[in-house]
Design a protein around this nucleic acid. Sequence first.
DNA 1: ATGTCTTTTGTAATACTATTACAGAAATTC
DNA 2: GAATTTCTGTAATAGTATTACAAAAGACAT
Lengths: 159, 159
Amino acid sequence: MTFSTPHHGHDACADAAEKRVEARASEAGKRLKDNHRIVFSILLSDHRAVGVYDIAARSEAHGKRLQPVQIYRALETLMELGSVHRVESANAYVACHSNHACRRPQILICTACERVSEMDSPKVQNALEQASLENGFVMTQQNIELRGLCPNCTGQPNA
Amino acid sequence: MTFSTPHHGHDACADAAEKRVEARASEAGKRLKDNHRIVFSILLSDHRAVGVYDIAARSEAHGKRLQPVQIYRALETLMELGSVHRVESANAYVACHSNHACRRPQILICTACERVSEMDSPKVQNALEQASLENGFVMTQQNIELRGLCPNCTGQPNA
DNA sequence: ATGTCTTTTGTAATACTATTACAGAAATTC
DNA sequence: GAATTTCTGTAATAGTATTACAAAAGACAT
């Protein structure tokens, strides 16, 4: 199941993501610093997309009030590492919980509980590539954002 | 070919789009007014996505300097009619040249010439719906934006 | 270690995008 | 044609993102 449940083992899930981003950073020859870690840990604290000014407000609880530009810089690095994705349709950012650094996420957004998840469907990928080619289009980037109800929210009114 | 060429018969193409939006409006029991027509005709004047404040600036040449909120209101109507799409990744809006009022466009953006086109691939659509279901996700809206090189821009440096 | 060069960080200001509030105009209804 | 509702125009403001620049930190040769 790609969507987190309200009571999943979140600490383990966040720990794993943190280890992944550290590994990816050192592999890429970059060193993560305080600001990166604060931003990433705020994004990890729930499975929702968070706006920059929200991150700024929450950063205070981490002992350091970050300014917008500092957050944008941290997000840029984290996105390059494939550990954070921007949700265009929400002007917000979400931590990636996938095991591989994904640069072509297919994002699912629940309109009821706001939880965000990702798919990585090869069928979707192939269909997009094939359809692009049929239109003579050479695709280099993609942004897929689907809205709807996640498994926790279908059936019951709220999660 | 979905992408317009630099020298296609643009007047005919724009005329057709204008007729379509008028037809859709009357079918929906809405009446288009000056502001709607100005905004739509600005979007039609090229096959690119245009930002709201750009539209505001260009509106002056149409004899009426529109304020942002007026443009947002016009765009809302035009989007409801399926004749304009928002390009989330560009904070901009594009006229729809498709014959059917499409609410689930698959948008193609050329990173070289900035032209925007749409696909409506059933394969992509099916793949998305199937993959969503496999994840227990009930999709209600979708936003697909692909970037890359359009047929006019592959091969030659610019169009 | 010291000085130079480069890169990163913090602060402030500003630009760009979108919405709210409200009064006046136009259309609708009775 | 008066009352009601809806739409329009103006202004102000909220929300998102970037630029500019000086200070600090890191890299590297001497």
